[in-house]
Design a protein around this nucleic acid. Sequence first.
RNA 1: GGGCCUGUAGCUCAGGUGGUUAGAGCGCUACACUGAUAAUGUAGAGGUCCGUGGUUCGAGUCCACGCAGGCCCA
Length: 1148
Amino acid sequence: MACFERDGIFAACILHLISTRKDIVKTYQEFKQVDYPHIGESILQYWKENQIFEKSIANRDGAETFTFFEGPPSANGTPGIHHVMARTLKDIFCRYKTLKGFQVKRKGGWDTHGLPVELQVEKELGITKEDIGTKITVEEYNKKCRETVMRFKNEWDDLTEKIGYWVDLDDPYITFDSKYIETLWYLLKKLYDKDLLYKGYTIQPYSPAAGTGLSSHELNQPGTYKDVKDTSITAQFKLKGEENTFILAWTTTPWTLPSNSALAIGENLDYVKVKTFNPYTHEAEFVILAKARMAAYLNPKANDLKVEDYKAGDKLIPYEIVAEFKGKDMLGWGYEQLFPIDALALPNPAFTVVSGDYVTTEDGTGIVHLAKAFGADDFRTLVQNNVPGVFVKDDLGNDIPVVDKQGKFLPVVGEYLAAKMKEHGITAHKEYGASDFYVKNYTEDDENAPDYKNTDVIISIILKNENKAFKVEKYEHSYPHCWRTDKPVLYYPLESWFIKTTAYKDRLVELNKTINWKPEATGTGRFGNWLENLVDWNLSRSRFWGTPLPIWRTSDGTEEKCIGSIAELNAEIEKSIAAGYMEKSPYEGKELDLHRPYVDDVVLISEKGEKMFREPDLIDVWFDSGAMPYAQWHYPFENEEVFKANYPADYIAEGVDQTRGWFFTLHAIAGMLFDSVAFKNVIANGLVLDKNGNKMSKRLGNAVDPFKTLKEYGPDALRWYMLSNANPWDNLKFNLDGVTEVQRRFFGTLQNTYNFFALYANLDAFVYDKSKAVPVAQRAELDQWIISKLQSLIAEVEEAMDNYDATRATRAIMNFTVDQLSNWYVRLARKRFWRGDMNADKQAAYETLYECLLTLTQLMSSFAPFYSDWLYNNLTETGAEGKESVHLTDWVAADQALINSDLEASMDLAQTISSLVHSLRKKEKLKVRQPLQRILIPVLSKKVQAQIEHVEDLIKTEVNIKAIEYIDDASGILVKDVKPNLPVLGKKLGPKMRFVVAAIKSWGQDEIAQIEREGKFPVAVEGETIEILLDEVLISSQDIPGWSVASDAGVTVALDVTLTDELKQEGVARDLVNRIQNLRKDMGLEVQDKIKIQVAEGNELVTKAVQSFGEYIQSETQALSLKLSAEAEKGTVLDMDDFEIAVLVEKA
RNA sequence: GGGCCUGUAGCUCAGGUGGUUAGAGCGCUACACUGAUAAUGUAGAGGUCCGUGGUUCGAGUCCACGCAGGCCCA
């Protein structure tokens, strides 16, 4: 069978191998090249066939649960590469916790409601919102939405599987499901019963011409914003308690001035009080405005003029600053109502100065006029400061603004304005009555009339006459218009349903402090600040496809009922039918569907016997997803036990853009209704950008296709790259070169290491058997060292993963594999594998390498689930202990007893020393093949010497030297160097540091000897003597006079470069071995093939080398014979760098 | 405009509590090794630690103010 060939690509055979593993020849499979994507596919198939995922959960029945919540994606678009990031991050901790013994149930889910789907459907059907209910029925429309929203479910499932994200895709929760909605209604009713669901106002864009509110999406239609010229007024608000002193505030909507109830300043902005004159009335006065805005209101040319010299009518108006202060000094100042209409009078703290974080000095006066009814900022600021707004009562006693829904002032203002027109003799194109003052929605007839004056202009004239306007001018700005009527939009209070989150603000803040956020700043900063500035959650959406608000109301709004379950709905319907308000249930003979339009057909009967109609709103889709902990189990109607065992979540992860979305709604619902957090640990991952740091977009064509990437690189390298490159909460500049690098550097190295193991293990017929393994304590130092390193690695990975730090874990694994295992352990241990017959040392080497590899498969299995399982299967198929999958194994904790830090320190020294000798050899142009007699190492303590002696053999082999000699103080040739130990000295000396440092640096050998002898050394600083103690300086060996030395990390090495004849001969012998090995390879010989060698006579050096080192040459080259002979001239002429020699090699 | 994040070598990133000459990998250059060989080792070049002030004997690290990029919210 092709699988058993040495060379070739084998991934294709894996499936077969695994399925027949019990019957195959006992051997470790060898692979020259690895097809990572194919490994992904075949292992995926293996998991499916053997139900590994299901087993990983079933195996943990009865174990402690680890709960994960899936934030539901929407399947109306295709998944992108950033979803690979998000889903990988979700997956790894669930896999890790499974290994650690937890049962981790993971239910998939789909977010199905909301605007994106609706817009997509509108686009596809070529309709607008207005057409729904006319050109197309709501029923048909919602049917289309339902189809569209799951359109790409298959692509999503496909990606989820291919990247190895283990989640239950067969039984997901779906937010449009009636059962799901029933739980939402249950939760809403709970809120309602706790008085946390109320109807209030929110300031929204409103088209008076169309009589309808506009969504932000409608406002973002092209052409909505137009440049228009409006009358702008800088009004004078008279400060209470001070004569002739006015706060200046600028507005482009003068019609909102009668509704003014506060002024906003920027706390850190600079303000001035200026003595000057009103340009219209010429009255002397003081005005207050931002210092940075003076030039816009006070002509700098008048700077030199004296205030006293001003005469009414002068063109240049002089001014003089009389006081300066910060915005925060103005907080709480009171002023008189601009339009003193009795019906609009307000109690304190109305008409005061408050703080607004949006106030700038870019335009206006640096002071912003606030009208609660007509601006979202205004509304929010006034609510936060408890300042009442200007409203009047309607017939039912509700507060309504002074502008009606046609965009016209109510008579209460109209009368006042009409009277003022008469008083000031203002004439216009027509006589204005109390009900004639439109504020935006002017009729065309009026606008085209000569001498037309609109309300803004009339207000301006009145204010000018009454010394209440400092500046009036036409101002061109961009203003939104209704896309349907082309008329300007008003910001206007519209009714909405709210969840009173503010009532639970303190508790939500408290609970948040118990959540482990990664990164922390997202929890304390972004999320924490958001909670601190919480406003009530606006739940209403005026759309069609979504969860209906389960509230029915009488027409006059005096009675209402909130429905909390399907059973309750049906019971109420029965009552209504009995009362004759409905003929029959809309659900009679039909499948239950709680969506519109069916639910709208339900008319209920109130306590008093009135008809009640459903409030037409849908709820915010974020409520849908925030309720998933309960609704995914149809709690409390079903699965109460499952819910309780899986709440709250131990872990969730989503993009940082979800902070105010899912993270918040989960937190709010849990805190308000269950007095609990919804999740204990959370990772908020960053964005995936293109390699240049730009946002990926399909339109720009820089989006990376996840399927294509998976096909090319396989899932493991992709996952590994995303986790190890940077912390997941930083933005990732996604670069395929990075994936290649991970594949080559980490997976390639690991694969090479495995191949090395497999090659020799098969030759030696080695099979790992734990019960017969050589005890670690009896293995070679090198083995003990790598086992020690391995235990440290396990501990580090465990600690990192327990702390939700995948980047640290992956990097640690990578460094161990590449630097320690491959580049040091295997390199130094190689000869043990290829020499001689099986013995205890050789077996220990195999066992050590095997144990490292096997442990690695488990450590990396969370991150690279496919490759690790593949490798695990390759390693374990010959042994009895292998489980079906690495994902079904139990975590093997680090064995502290095997950690040997002394040995690790020794090995660090060996690595440093070897590196130094290499560098010296290079400097002296002495290649490693040339043996050298000795190196000298100065040692400052017996301990260091002992540590090096421990690894002497390794060093000698690695750098090809015969001996290591140590030089200590007694040798008398050591030159030492001294440096101040800055962290220690700094604490003791403070400012005197620099004198002492200078003194220490000037020390010679005598001073160093003295402090070593006496443990202290006096230094004179500014007449004072300071004792420097031995542990306040760092002493190192610096040099050995007359030798070629190199130093690093406190270690110094000197190389003896003397070449004796014997060394030269040995060098030649090794050169010969090298050349003959190359010949063997050229001849295409297998490793185990034997040869016969003949070497030409005549070169004295070669002759001596063959005589002295013949045995060595023979054993290295698998030669049965080696002789000097003239025959050799028929063979190959070898280039020995300095000379040439002919050699004849034949297969034996 | 506000909140939060990021800025260190050509690229991707490390750099507890301030402390000696700021590191790694990749890439580049040169050399070496050669029974892991499409592997490996060594060395070299490469830095205004975003900027400006400040605190300190000493700042990549702490503080302030900026600049650039990003996310969310207005």
